[in-house]
Design a binder for these strands. Structure first.
Lengths: 339, 339
DNA sequence: CTGTTAGCGCATTCAG
DNA sequence: CTGAATGCGCTAACAG
């Protein structure tokens, strides 16, 4: 039924080892024979069985990618970019969507990628135990999120600097009551929201603005969460005149809440997001842009580099540039005061 | 180094076949021995090599998913949903991003999934040659896009009915000059935009409205494309009072163009989209909703069903429900006329 | 219920 | 430059 290397060898009148060498471009085959074999293989529609060749060689030509979500813009975009780099180099991508605690736990205990991938790209921040499990695979590891981590090549951004630039922008515009909608604070090892919050506090302190805990709300990184969080902030006795949302999706939720409350943006309330979501421009959202596609591609590239040169010292942490993009959702506070 | 089935067998004092049977839950092993083996395997941190077991059994427990994009909302969402179903059933997902003509061509000529997957889910519409290539894999095939197709289980929507409901809505509001921003018309086998256009023409004809080719523009399924297309439409001598965009992303681009032209929505121009993108609600976009998550999950489920019962006749075409969602971007035409 | 024996399809020694 | 032999780790008959 399905054509194997033996069929090609027989049809070409050579041995299977010659076929193997010829097709993979290894030395030790005359150009003549090589061309002949290529022709025969094409005719027969031969493709080497990945299972068999990985079993024999130990290499899988497959990269495992683990992510907490796929449908969400940031992750889909990183994945898209990384996949292109991998496939261009002849690697396949094995995808694991680890959104729920159960799937996540099952993945790390059973480690289905063991002996199945040549490297792993993580789009989620593993806790210490999970990181150890990944290291036990003994393959190159990379990540596009979180801070530096032993055994991983992390291609990230300076979350503190990014968040600081957003909040400082609001301060410079003259805002004093600045709220924040933060990302999920639940998994403690998820350092991103912590770093961004730290920046928020630091900038306020620098500006001599007293921190008001009532001006903080959790938006869980979703549009709905952002909407709820904004609603909470508006319910305060003295609502903010400006809000820093830790992600564009939450910022969009905030915009919706403001619209429902008949508040104008930026006249009544200013809003800054974080990410530069593909629709941020459509909406006119002021935000901190991070090179999402670039992060995915760069992480993939660095992983391939390690695969090519296993002995070289892998880079630990690569910082990608960020920049504040001013659009239409921020302005000086209304002279009439909040509301 | 890495622990194999032989190590487990030796440690448990049984043969490798018993270990194999025990760990895969096959009959013919006493509960006692099975439990013992499970313990030993866990202690040693044993995971069966997928390469070896697929080579031996012919089954890969892997599903190939091919998509034209991943970062774009529709595809990311379908993929997310499908992956969850597959992984819950113990299957891994091999992802192929076939966005460019080159990657696409390479995939279909080399067919890297051959002997590597137990089934294929396609998020793109293959042309006849590509479909034949997939059929040659001799594994169950499913798709979430396009119309019925031989050898495929297609979980789609009634594009004609969906588009018709959108255009009819505009007609019912009293619009006579109704424009359309269509999806990429380039690959001829891409039937979706054709079906939606057909519906547009049909509804206009039904309403006794003469079709004006100047009221159609191509938006290539992107936000930027939608913006450009809308700009073109506005440049017409008699611009439309309402526009049907074949995707929400193009509708969002249209909204942006309208804003730039200082036209109010829906007062000056009404806009309807298609998809119910996650941000459509945030923007208040009237649109035709399709159950994207449901389509991905259902297609995955049907594929697994075929894997479980290879002899059963696979369903050819499953129609998922659609519905028009009225929000804030559509209203009767302004009594003052266009502009 | 359990062990023995053969491959699955290929890459890689080692000879020639 | 080429072919013959060996084994990667596992599953699937086949015996017992």
């Amino acid at each position: 039924m399905t054509v194997s290397i033996t069929d090609v060898a027989r049809a070409a009148g050579v041995s299977t080892s010659t076929v193997s060498r010829a097709l993979r471009g290894r030395p030790g085959v005359s150009d003549e024979v090589r061309a002949q074999i290529a022709t025969v293989a094409a005719q027969l529609g031969y493709t080497a069985s990945r299972s068999a060749s990985s079993l024999a060689s130990g290499r899988t030509f497959t990269i495992g990618v683990i992510a907490p979500y796929i449908g969400r813009w940031f992750f889909g975009t990183v994945l898209d970019a990384a996949e292109k780099v991998f496939s261009a180099a002849g690697y396949d991508v094995l995808l694991y969507n680890l959104g729920t605690p159960e799937t996540r736990k099952r993945f790390f205990t059973r480690l289905p990628v063991r002996k199945r991938v040549d490297a792993v790209l993580s789009l989620l921040i593993p806790d210490e135990e999970e990181a150890a499990a990944l290291r036990s695979l003994e393959v190159p590891l990379a990540s596009t999120v979180g801070g530096a981590r032993e055994g991983f090549t992390v291609v990230g951004i300076d979350d503190h600097a990014g968040a600081a630039s957003a909040v400082r922008h609001l301060v410079n515009l003259g805002h004093r009551r600045i709220g924040m909608i933060s990302g999920a604070s639940e998994p403690l090892h998820w350092t991103t929201p912590l770093a961004r919050r730290r920046a928020y506090l630091d900038v306020l302190a620098d500006a001599g603005i007293e921190h008001d805990p009532k001006l903080e709300a959790d938006g869980g990184y979703t549009v709905e969460g952002g909407e709820q969080a904004m609603t909470e902030l508006l319910a305060a006795s003295r609502p903010p005149t400006a809000v820093f949302a830790q992600s564009d999706e939450m910022a969009m939720g905030a915009l919706r809440a403001l619209r429902r409350h008949r508040l104008r943006v930026p006249d009544d309330v200013s809003v800054v997001g974080f990410d530069d979501h593909e629709l941020a421009e459509v909406i006119g959202l002021t935000t901190v842009a991070q090179p999402v596609t670039g992060q995915g591609a760069e992480a993939a590239r660095l992983l391939l580099e390690q695969l090519d040169a296993p002995d070289a010292e892998p880079p630990g942490h690569v910082q990608m540039p960020i920049r504040l993009i001013l659009r239409e959702t921020t302005a000086p506070p209304s002279p009439r005061g909040p509301q």
